[in-house]
Design a protein around this nucleic acid. Structure first.
Lengths: 232, 232
DNA sequence: CCTCATTTGTCCGTATGTATT
DNA sequence: CAATACATACGGACAAATGAG
């Protein structure tokens, strides 16, 4: 077995055993400890990064990620989330809120004409202080203009109910998986080699049947198991 | 942009444009062509490997993988599949069919006692000659012993209906994503860096309500989008 | 605001081992 | 056996980001 893999095994065992999230590690210190060249140690750390156990940060060091134990040993401890319940997280950080022309794709989803304006919201939701999902939401500006002005935190669905008396209903969702782009990986604090679970869904005003929200959510794959329940 | 990424972009563009699957590439030839050190070129090829575009083989070279075009250019060509419809594929290759003691996990799912026997089936389902998913199915031997003896191909659900008069119903599914282990990656003909979508589900005999099949399916993430439809 | 030490990111060079043809 | 090609490991050098002061 190559040296770099032996080192990776040792480090992985240490992480899983103690999960000591203290000061970040240093390549120089580790390479000295194992008596190998820095490049060899980097190769070992590459394995851990691919395994989602650690994260590198230039100028700082190598961070041991929390939750690593859960990921490797007990997928049963993942979060379980009903699809119907998504969008109700308490801890929400809104990154961007803009009003622009709808793209063809989204216009079609929302039943808009080309050139109609839409509200685009990008948000990160966290659980236990850890990023959990990135959400891109699109709403027709003409129907809910007050969202652009006044929605700033918490549940969008709750806001729509309080402010506009709109109750949203969901017909279905499309679920897929992919590797995250660099921006999402950074927001979710995962390595770009770790997959995300994407849920696309269209929400209607239950009163009028009009599409009001098109939502694309990317969840950390290592923290989520979606539960789909059928009637009966 | 670092050199290795520029090179990766050039090579990726070439692959997507012509997909010339001829002789495998050589690191030495490529590094000479781009005028960089071999290690720098290796770093560029790492990107392509992570992207599922090429495969390395020691002593041979770097192979361009077929199907790369579909993966990168047209996510729209993914299959869309209702969860309820899974398990009905026509082209099924059964890899293993064994009768053993149920593990604790599976015994609990199927409502068996520890030590009860179960049938374990491992199969690969293909669409258009391309591997589509790997399926692990577990059934209580006491209830459907004829499966161990006579089920050899096609839809298990159809076989159960024809042979035992059992109609299966599904209550729900658990959906998650992960990187495949080496065996699954090989069966699905994808690189281990490409995520799979896993659907776990428990199927009951609609007549008696007894669990009859516990099924774990790993789909190629790049070929599947699951559609979940809600009643209404 | 700037400086400085620390730390990771990138690139080069060289050598040796191992698998394939 | 020999040639080719990837895999691993060592070394040095500089750039870029970060945080302390």
């Amino acid at each position: 077995m190559p040296i770099y893999r032996q080192i990776a095994d040792v480090l992985e065992a240490e992480i899983l055993e103690s999960r000591d999230i203290g000061k970040p590690w240093s390549e120089l210190a580790l390479s000295s400890r194992f008596g190998v060249n820095r490049h060899t140690l980097r190769r070992a750390v590459d394995v851990l990064v691919s395994g989602g156990l650690v994260r590198r940060q230039r100028g700082v060091g190598i961070h041991v990620l929390p939750g690593a134990i859960d990921y490797k040993l007990s997928p049963a401890t993942r979060f379980t989330m009903m699809i119907e319940d998504s969008g109700h997280s308490a801890d929400t950080r809104i990154l961007r809120k803009t009003v622009t022309c709808a793209t063809d794709d989204i216009a079609q989803q929302l039943g808009l004409e080309a050139g109609d304006q839409m509200i685009a919201i990008e948000a990160v939701r966290s659980v236990d202080e850890q990023p959990f999902c990135v959400q891109s939401q699109f709403l027709p500006y003409a129907i809910v203009p007050y969202v652009a002005a006044d929605y700033n935190e918490g549940s969008l669905h709750g806001f729509l109910a309080d402010r506009g008396g709109i109750k949203l209903g969901r017909l279905g969702s499309m679920i897929s998986t992919m590797l995250p782009d660099e921006g999402d990986a950074q927001l979710l604090r995962i390595d770009p080699s770790q997959p995300v679970l994407q849920v696309r869904s269209l929400n209607m005003d239950t009163a009028t049947g009009r599409p009001v929200e098109y939502c694309v959510t990317r969840f950390r794959g290592d923290r989520l198991e979606l539960r789909v329940q059928f009637p009966g």
